[in-house]
Design a protein around this nucleic acid. Structure first.
Lengths: 146, 146
DNA sequence: TATTGTTATACTCTATAACTATA
DNA sequence: TATAGTTATAGAGTATAACAATA
């Protein structure tokens, strides 16, 4: 097996483990990855109409309807009427939604710290650069193939 | 942002890009990730009854029924009767299934090569080791939390 | 009595198409 | 006429529970 294949294997293994870890963490607070993604956009970009969410999530408006339905039912967000355009509603985090979102951010920071502690302190920055370079390349491969 | 957080960000970006890249590749040959996973197990471990597939894929037997239904319909596998146990059937790759699977293996090898070329040759092996160490840690975190 | 695979049912994420209300 | 969001429909992956056929 070449070093490149070993690298790919390790990355795929990391991918699977990370996904599992994050999904169980999200499930513990009552979220799924897709719903957490939407919550993340609200945290970063503030209250938004569903069209804007659809664009940022790269998903159809219909899909956003379903995600917001579930998040609203579970008390994470509300749909606020927009006075200037009665077609649109503004999706807004509830207090509880914000609390949960803050917890996710904290958990992510903690996971970053745990990963950093796996390696000698001097290597973490270089590793981050190398992995970023790999990500750039894969994005180029996928994007450029069109 | 700490180096650990930068590392985590890079890894998550790589994860997303890889997933997208692989999904489009699979779709081009008529497979989904879940079905390709099943095909991969057949390549590695040979023809299997569905119970064994369910264990290796870590999904329910019911789920395997659905995946095999789809793979059978699309001509990738067949269900062969098992003479010694008439309850069970043995899931077997067709000639076309094997061809497609060989293509996936080749594609993976090529992707490994492309990743390796992103970095100075001397760093690839060390990077593979570091990423493997991260994967070990995340598996430990997820598994040990039970 | 235990095991293999299935039918029945349900939830989540995703998509397209057609429609309503509003701009 | 264009836009925001919905209903209708569909496919994929996943799960549990009940059941048939076989061991």
């Amino acid at each position: 097996m070449t070093d490149g294949e070993r690298l790919l294997d390790a990355v795929l293994r990391l991918t699977t483990a990370l996904q599992r870890d994050m999904e169980t963490g999200l499930a513990a607070v009552g979220l799924t990855p897709a719903r957490a993604h939407l919550v993340g956009v609200l945290v970063t970009s503030g209250p938004q109409p569903q069209q804007a969410l659809a664009r940022q999530l790269e998903v159809t408006p219909r899909n956003v309807t379903g995600l917001v339905d579930a998040l609203e039912r579970d008390g994470f967000v509300t749909r606020e009427p927009q006075p200037t355009d009665r077609r649109a509603s503004i999706v807004t985090l509830t207090a509880r939604g914000r609390e949960v979102a803050d917890g996710l951010v904290a958990g992510r920071r903690e996971l970053g710290g745990q990963l950093a502690r796996v390696l000698p302190a001097g290597r973490v920055a270089a590793l981050a650069d190398d992995v970023a370079a790999l990500a750039d390349e894969v994005e180029r491969l996928a994007g450029g193939a069109r």
